[in-house]
Amino acid sequence: MSGYLIHSARQLADKIYEYWVEAPRIATKHAAGQFIILRLHDHGERIPLTVVETNPQSGQIRLIVQVAGKTTEEFAQLKTGDFILDLVGPLGQATHIHNWGNLIVIGGGVGSAPLLPIAKAAKAGGNKVHAIIGARSKDLLILTEEFETVCDEVRVCTDDGTFGTKGFVTDVLNSWCETGTRFTYGIAVGPVPMMRAAAKTMGQWGIPGLASLNPIMLDGTGMCGACRVTVNNVTRFACVEGPEFDIHGVDFNELMMRNRSYINEEHEAVEHAHQCQLNEMIKHVRAEA
């Protein structure tokens, strides 16, 4: 077997998995904000994933994956000792850390994973870092303890109130600001509707900042333009110029629309895979009978 060895794999939450993968060159090179693109097998799709943490000594990188469709579902079945066929990176621009002062970082769902290294780097860069971590429900929350160790203050919320405050990350941001805290910069990572809402709330409180975008990507080297996003009315290639952009300039509606380009095909892919698995099982049962 060739490829990139999975050193450890474990489940973090419902449909969310964590992996430490051997990729020594990337482990030494990676900076917060950057991602990799991988392909699991020879018929596989190339998908982008953020590098959440690295261990340059052991040459490993940490990935956190949420099952969203065919490829991530296949990924979730990989175990310690399995290999990933292709893995390239680190791609994209590293977060340009400044001393912003009073920083608020906002993570929604699995978006908390890409946010963690940014929060760490910002803290190391001398910022006071506050975090809002949100998820739909308690069993989808991840990394809250790690944020606690990195940030000056962390507030957690769930849509259904099963943990932390009941409500959206924007509700938490509003109430935080209403109590008089002035944030001088904000960074939001999560599902597109969440980032769009965060942009609006941040705008209302006059907070400038960044969003880390997740368009569909193929090569990740600027060659195809699949990852086009519109920022301040200019077309940008997110894989090489991003993935972080001025949150107040991003055309989130376009991003959401473009991410739905293959919605029918994505269902078909999952169904096809399940059908294949079923056929395999039937073959096995027949062979054993």
């Binding site: 018929h43 799709e45 190339r46 095909e265 994505e266 078909e268 892919a269 096809h272």
Partner: peptide, 12 residues
């Protein structure tokens, strides 16, 4: 990426 052979290949 073999998209002409989707869904046998994963890329659409």
């Amino acid at each position: 990426l073999g998209a002409d052979r989707f869904p046998e290949f994963d890329t659409p």
